[in-house]
């Protein structure tokens, strides 16, 4: 059932290259104005997924609907309303930044005014290098130009492939602010991929985590770190304590000078009872909640992804 209200709908999407399964049973529904992060290690299938969304590849299984349309059958209509920015940024080397912003919108029959181009260049911080050929640009500048061309004219859905690649930390911050601003001002729906979770975790509403082409997690960043609270204890004889917990079938590991238990963070009394039975003294405790990155790594270890 097609849901035209969804900016992007992926259902049971799969794609194989020869004998290699690049994507398998991936599903996602994005509401207008939503920002979804596409996360996964290199080779997880992020770029394949984006190329399926762009209609550059045919799915072997499932289907893609972009603003209610099939991107392969209605490529022109889709590209009128959606913009893609691939990494590494493909640009015309001998042309200047301004020439990119003049000529690329013209391909779709849109004449962009000089003031709009100036504003786009200013927004991405390229106004001072606007008339220099792209071949003189750094990777970060290329990324910013790619973003500038992607918002001229403003699309309804923006798909960014590794937009933070090659950007310095300050530029990543600026990019985040820019994307938030675009969402607020234009209700722009954004799908952005990254293999570095920390760079997008504050930006996204939801995350689709891929590993070996399969969905490992789909939900909010908060949901990813749910149930990750672990009890960390300070005891006088850590080895004896580890043995005591092991006898009760409770896994534990040393983290620095603390003993981390595979127990919910609220189960302090049970832990204290085990220690007391062995005559061990508890000198301190705290509850540790995993960071988003730790939670993701844990998921990847549990799944088929790389640790």
């Amino acid at each position: 059932m097609v849901q035209p209200s969804a900016a992007l709908l992926l259902e049971g999407l799969g794609r194989t290259f020869g004998t290699r399964r690049a994507l398998w049973d991936v599903g996602l529904e994005m509401a207008p104005g939503e920002i979804v992060g596409l996360v996964g290690p290199n080779g997880a299938g992020k770029t394949t997924l984006i190329k399926l969304i762009a209609g550059f590849l045919r799915p072997d299984a499932g289907r893609v609907r972009v603003l209610g349309m099939c991107p392969r059958r209605r490529s022109r209509q889709v590209m009128e309303r959606v913009r893609f920015a691939f990494a590494p940024p493909p640009l015309f080397e001998p042309l200047t930044a301004r020439e990119h912003l003049v000529h690329l919108p013209r391909l779709g029959g849109t004449e962009v005014s000089r003031s709009e181009i100036d504003r786009a260049l200013q927004v991405v911080g390229l106004d001072e290098r606007a008339d220099e050929p792209v071949r003189t640009f750094s990777t970060g500048m290329r990324q910013r130009l790619t973003l500038a061309q992607a918002i001229l004219p403003m699309p309804e859905l923006l798909v960014l492939d590794e937009p933070t690649e090659g950007l310095d930390p300050l530029a990543v911050l600026e990019l985040r602010s820019l994307l938030v601003l675009l969402r607020e001002e234009h209700n722009l729906t954004i799908l952005l991929s990254s293999h570095l979770l920390v760079e997008i975790e504050e930006l996204v509403d939801r995350m689709l985590v891929l590993s070996n082409g399969e969905t490992l997690f789909l939900g909010t960043p908060g949901e990813l770190t749910e149930h990750t609270a672990r009890l960390r204890l300070k005891v006088d004889r850590a080895e004896a304590a580890q043995e005591a917990f092991g006898e009760r079938g409770i896994a534990s590991q040393m983290v620095g000078d603390e003993l981390e238990l595979a127990l919910d963070g609220t189960d302090l009394e049970g832990a204290r009872a085990i220690l007391r039975a062995r005559g061990l003294a508890l000198t301190g405790f705290r509850t540790h909640r995993a960071t988003l990155e730790e939670a993701l790594l844990e998921r990847l270890r549990q799944g088929k992804g790389r640790p």
Binding site: R76, M79, R83, P90, F92
Partner: peptide, 11 residues
């Protein structure tokens, strides 16, 4: 890869 620049436009 500049073909992508063309193909991602309504042309």
């Amino acid at each position: 890869r500049t073909l992508l620049l063309f193909l991602t436009r309504p042309v």
